[in-house]
Design a protein around this nucleic acid. Structure first.
Length: 859
DNA sequence: ACCTGCTAGGTTTTT
DNA sequence: CCTAGCAGGT
């Protein structure tokens, strides 16, 4: 269990001054403690500026993690704070682990004493457990994941007899999550929004959901922070306690923080003498100054105002030492509540802040960096950084057009094999896609090629059904009031306890206001159930009672094994003949094994939902396949970026929903993608892509137009000179592109360029060429022209997608069955099937192919 | 309790 | 087009 009082047993707290520490020594020259050596001047400044608020704008590959960890080392070795007095927050467990690891290398065992290094949620959860009673919880509360959340909401919707077809529980879960991300308690939700769901019942449902959570002794992810905020506000003494404790605050990925996280940080980072009233003042001024629709505005309006704490005379204002590290150009989570604004307004929010830019990139070659920088320069609303490298220019970024997505996958597959032949490690190759459905084509291709690959992302370990079932058993043992867990496993494995039984239990539980488990205990004493169900349920209750008794005398790992075996859960999967049963059993073993790291069941359960993440078998050499989002923070020698087409990337939906802000976020996504590459970045676009089953002709992404010509090379899908092609599809593919009429071939580019300069009437002309560097910098420092054409597009009746669809599928094909046709690549053939503009043609030589009608002519 | 057929919807994801 | 989730039947 975690103690409230901070342990002073921390080993290796360096209260000695390092050899060359001290201001004088630092001022003298670049001599210093050895952990400072090797830092560049900006990094060093970021490490050594300990007093006051600091914002470190750390571009991609500029040594952000190093700065954070070195800064902690510096604070410790300067004797400024003890490990337990440093609050260091990250977003992901992975990042937290990485920091712990690097700190461990730097400091040795001292890291064990960094109890406040973790994710926002794990730290928030930790604080909440200390003060659980103030949130009407017990300290062993359960953290619900999305699945539990949705099931709970479903029950609420049913109780309110709301049609969960029209108003899905998932949607409500999303709304509530959004409100919590913005720091809004049920009473603070703007009435307009609260009314949005289920004809005005949204707000009420949120409130009753919160009530239910308390009864279940449960909190969802959002509560871990929101309840902290509430406790801090309502109990200034508690807040002060934490403010005093945390001498230094470090925040990673600040650009990803949402409003709740911002408020949380803001509260904690105030000097102890200024407690919540001051914070609210700051927040209020922030929204006053800003736009009325600033998310924090309502919050201030609706926030309950406890009596301000009078400031004691003589208490001097202490500078708060908060250091936020982030990169506005890598903010890609706006859609889930991240407020880029937080980082953009840092200097305003933390007056007197020192802003340090890390612009020396140690990752990518010159061409890659130039391409990425030039692309991101099209964004307005950025703090502005210019990444530079001392690395070689390297290879240019390549842009390759393919006929369709299948060919794109084939081309990339061949390219990868080529790289492999050159001795590249597959582990150093990644394919970064915009949407996960793009992955499938690559998987198919790699399976046929026998190319090892791994998919990063996807369902987490603890989200797997078998893991959640196993956890549910343990949860019921740990917390008999955990109805959600009980309901989940009461009939898993099958025990003949169907809907009727569950309904009866629910009725009982509600009537007597007791948990389901207790209701079950009571019900088996009556004859309300059929003998079979009754006996079955009695066994379940008896089993849990036995397990709970055993808990006192059995190691938690053994107990888990016993539970899984005695419940018949293991057996259930052993008897299952489906293909993944073996894997599930393996996962269960892994779960039990992972419990060893924790002291007891309680400790395990506290952490499981927060810190358990899947670890891939990174040991094998394999190509990595993932979304651009999950690639953030990773790097590879070779990066493939397929699918750079309008509609897909930038995503049409984002554009429709978020407009200009959405476009900018998409562009940042592109920037993130490019900057993942150390030595080779290879962009692809396909001319045809199947969207929802129908083939559409696509146009290259506008982001391609925004790449600097000098750093980009247009290649063919295969056999470009750089890699000494082996022939094959390359040449003919290029022919297809020519047939299309305007492609990335140089003539096409020139044509499009000419069009565009003339005022570019038709949308098709948007398929331009690369910008010339000079032109961009002089004429449009912040992408004026691009937005001009973009907005005029949006003003018009047609979206990009819409127009294209209309153009290509709107009219029925002018071809009829068995027409004789000619195709540039495949030669002569006849039409065997017509599907809108998509023809299936049996070619004399090439066999059956699917082709878009505009690519063939009557023969 | 399981299976089958239908319909709706179809970015990104951590905790 | 494809698939996940649900209602309804057996």
């Amino acid at each position: 269990m975690i103690r409230m009082t901070e342990p002073s047993k921390i080993t290796g707290v360096p209260d000695h001054q390092p050899a060359a520490g001290g201001i004088a020594a630092r001022a003298r020259a670049s001599v210093g403690p050895k952990y400072l050596t090797g830092l560049n001047p900006e990094q060093r400044e970021a490490v050594e500026t300990l007093d006051g608020p600091v914002l470190v704008l750390a571009g991609a590959g500029t040594g952000k993690t190093r700065v954070l960890t070195t800064r902690i080392a510096h604070i410790l070795s300067q004797g400024r704070a003890r490990p337990a007095e440093i609050l260091s927050v990250t977003f992901t467990n992975k990042a937290a682990r990485e920091m712990k690891h690097r700190l461990g290398q730097m400091l040795g065992h001292a890291v064990e004493g960094m109890p406040w290094l973790g994710t926002f949620h794990s730290i928030g959860g930790r604080i909440l457990r200390f003060h659980a009673e103030l949130a009407q919880l017990k300290s062993n509360f359960t953290v619900l994941d999305v699945d539990d959340q949705v099931r709970l909401l479903k029950q609420l919707l049913q109780a309110e007899s709301i049609d969960d077809k029209r108003w899905p529980a998932r949607m409500l879960a999303g709304l509530i999550d959004g409100w919590k991300n913005r720091g809004l308690m049920p009473s603070q939700v703007p009435s307009g929004e609260a009314a949005m769901f289920a004809n005005g019942k949204g707000g009420k449902l949120y409130a009753s959901y919160q009530e239910r959570l308390k009864i279940l002794n449960a909190a969802d992810f959002g509560d871990l922070l929101l309840e902290n905020i509430r406790i801090f506000r309502e109990h200034p003494d508690i807040l002060r306690q934490y403010q005093q404790r945390f001498k230094y605050i470090l925040v990673d990925e600040y650009q990803d923080t949402n409003v709740a996280q911002y408020l949380w940080l803001r509260l904690l980072s105030q000097a102890p003498s200024f407690t919540s009233p001051r914070v609210r003042g700051e927040v209020a001024s922030r929204s006053d100054a800003g736009e009325g629709d600033s998310p924090s505005a309502e919050l201030v309006e609706a926030a309950p105002h406890p009596a301000p704490l009078p400031m004691k005379d003589g208490e001097r204002e202490r500078t708060k030492n908060i250091c936020c590290v982030g990169d506005d150009d890598q903010s890609i989570y706006g859609w889930r509540g991240a407020e880029v604004d937080n980082i953009l307004r840092f200097e305003h929010d933390f007056p007197g802040a020192k802003v340090i830019r890390l612009e020396r990139n140690y990752r990518s070659t010159g061409h890659i960096l130039a391409a990425a920088s030039h692309l991101i320069a099209h964004n307005e609303g950025r703090l502005g950084k210019t990444l530079r490298t001392e690395d070689v220019e390297g290879e240019k970024v390549t842009v390759t057009g393919s006929w369709d997505s299948e060919e794109e996958a084939r081309g990339i597959g061949e390219e990868i094999e080529q790289l492999q032949r050159q001795g590249e490690k597959l582990n150093e190759i990644a394919i970064l896609v915009r949407a996960s459905y793009q992955m499938r084509e690559f998987e198919d291709r790699f399976v046929t090629l026998g190319l090892p690959y791994r998919v990063i992302g996807g369902p987490r370990f603890y989200e797997r059904a078998e893991i959640r079932d196993a956890l549910a058993y343990l949860r019921v043992i740990n917390s008999p009031a955990d109805d959600l867990a009980f309901e989940r496993i009461v009939n898993v494995p099958k025990r003949g306890l169907g809907d009727a039984t569950i309904q009866l239990l629910h009725d009982h539980a509600r009537k007597r206001r007791i948990p389901l488990f207790e209701a079950a205990r009571a019900v088996v004493e009556t004859d309300e159930l059929k003998p079979k169900a009754r006996g079955s349920l009695r066994d379940v209750v008896a089993q849990f009672d036995r397990w709970r008794a055993q808990r006192e005398v059995t190691a938690h790992t053994d107990l888990a094994q016993i539970v899984l075996d005695e419940s018949g859960y293991t057996e259930m999967w052993q008897k299952d003949r489906s293909a993944d049963a073996a894997g599930r059993l393996e996962n269960l073993k892994e779960l039990v094994r992972s419990m060893e790291e924790f002291e007891n069941l309680q400790g395990f359960l506290e952490h499981i939902s927060l810190v358990m993440d899947r670890e891939g078998g990174a040991e094998d050499d394999a190509v990595s396949l993932m979304t651009l989002h999950s690639a953030k923070g990773l790097e590879f020698d070779n990066v493939f970026l397929p699918g750079w087409e309008e509609g897909l990337f930038p995503s049409q939906r984002t554009l429709d929903e978020q407009g200009r802000a959405g476009l900018e976020e998409e562009r940042r996504l592109g920037h993130v993608g490019l900057t993942r590459a150390r030595r080779r970045a290879m962009i692809y676009f396909a001319t045809n892509r199947r969207i929802h089953g129908t083939w559409s002709t696509t146009i290259p992404s506008r982001f391609l137009d925004e790449l600097p010509a000098a750093n980009v090379e247009i290649t063919e899908s295969k056999g470009g000179s750089a890699w000494g092609g082996t022939g094959g599809y390359g040449a003919s593919r290029f022919d297809d592109m020519e047939a299309f009429g305007s492609t990335y071939s140089t003539p096409g580019w020139q044509r499009a360029q000419a069009n565009r300069n003339r005022g570019g009437g038709r949308n098709g002309g948007g398929r331009g060429g690369f910008e010339e560097e000079a032109a961009t910098f002089s004429s449009s420092p912040s992408s004026g022209p691009d937005f001009g054409s973009f907005s005029s597009r949006r003003r018009g009746p047609m979206t990009i997608e819409g127009e294209l669809v209309a153009k290509s599928t709107g009219t029925t094909s002018e071809f009829s069955l068995s027409d004789r046709v000619f195709h540039q690549k495949f030669g002569y053939g006849h039409v065997t099937k017509i599907d809108g503009n998509k023809l299936t043609i049996h070619f004399d030589k090439a066999g059956e192919k699917k082709v878009v009608d505009s690519f063939v002519q009557r023969a």
